[in-house]
């Protein structure tokens, strides 16, 4: 088992006729993901170059294809509505790649989709991949390999960097999930750690955190109370000045809290080793899995 996505994932691409949506739909098809349809309002009835049918609405797309997952590549101003539309159409997992959503939109979206039993990953997420089975997002498929390490991250390219080292050192992945760099996301570090805890195919978890908020501290608390998998961590932003937003809307040290030092201390307390460099994650894995 992987978490959240697998061979049963039947995917709709929201914003499929856009530049990013179109490009990544092709990339996902090439990876082997079952992309069953796309949605762009007003462009229903067309087919993409890969032969994927385009629908006007999510309701129609789900009825016609039986999709259970959607991925969103629409402009930020329309993304909150796209998430709600997918949820209302009965999709159980929505992955929002779009970035720059107003936080106010997010706090309104979450109760709406929770009521409908939909899980959201993102926004501002690189997506989720279960190597060899399904890729839903924008990550390069070729750096991944099948295996038993679960990866959860608040970042995109930094995750690729670390996955690249894991794969080169022979540590394949069960599932890699980028939860998104915003302060408020649908699925946070803690939620994901709980999914990995229950996943038979995951033996170890790599947690890639960064400055801002206290998700990492909460994850450390979870580990303290008995976590069934081995854990290694990386923390970005040790040199970040306080009060400055470091690219991600959620990556900010404010009022002296949310620092990398605090997070590293929380991990040290519960015996989780924090790597100094991305490459070191693979070294820690070697020790943990020996």
């Amino acid at each position: 088992m992987s978490i959240l996505v697998d061979r049963e994932t039947k995917l709709i691409v929201q914003g499929i006729t856009g530049r990013d949506g179109g490009f990544h739909a092709s990339q996902m098809v090439a990876y082997g993901t079952k992309v069953v349809g796309g949605v762009t309002p007003g462009k229903g009835g067309q087919k993409t170059g890969d032969g994927i049918p385009v629908f006007d609405s999510m309701a129609e797309a789900v009825t016609e294809t039986g999709a259970n997952t959607s991925v969103i590549y629409v402009p930020a101003a329309f993304a909150a509505d796209a998430i709600c539309e997918a949820s209302d159409a009965g999709v159980k997992l929505v992955v929002c790649i779009s970035e720059g959503l107003p936080v106010r939109d997010m706090v309104k979206v979450l109760p709406f989709i929770t009521e409908r039993g939909t899980r959201l990953i993102g926004p501002n997420s690189p997506g989720i991949i279960s190597p060899g089975r399904s890729k839903v997002g924008i990550m390069p498929g070729n750096i991944h390999s099948e295996g038993s390490v679960g990866v959860v991250s608040r970042s995109g390219t930094l995750t690729y960097e670390i996955v690249y080292h894991l794969t080169r050192s022979g540590f394949g992945q069960s599932t890699c999930i980028g939860i998104g760099g915003d302060p408020i996301v649908g699925t946070n570090l803690l939620d994901t750690m709980k999914f990995f805890a229950e996943d038979d195919e995951t033996d170890a978890v790599v947690l890639i955190g960064e400055i801002g908020g206290n998700d990492e501290e909460l994850a450390a608390e979870l580990i303290k109370n008995g976590y069934p998998k081995k854990v290694a961590a990386f923390l970005a932003g040790r040199t970040a000045p306080p009060g400055k937003r470091m690219g991600h809307a959620g990556a900010i040290v404010s009022g002296g809290t949310g620092t990398a030092a605090e997070k590293a201390a929380a991990f040290a307390k519960v015996g989780v080793e924090v790597a100094d460099t991305p490459a070191q994650i693979a070294d820690i894995m070697k020790r943990l899995m020996a």
Partner: peptide, 28 residues
């Protein structure tokens, strides 16, 4: 996305997490 610091090594990186990790590694 840009934040000025006081060092000598200019950094251009794609992605916020990797950009932070790059700064951290320069310091390391």
């Amino acid at each position: 996305s840009f934040v000025k610091l006081d060092g000598k090594i200019g950094c251009i990186v794609n992605g916020a997490g990797l950009a932070m990790a790059t700064m951290d590694m320069v310091k390391h």
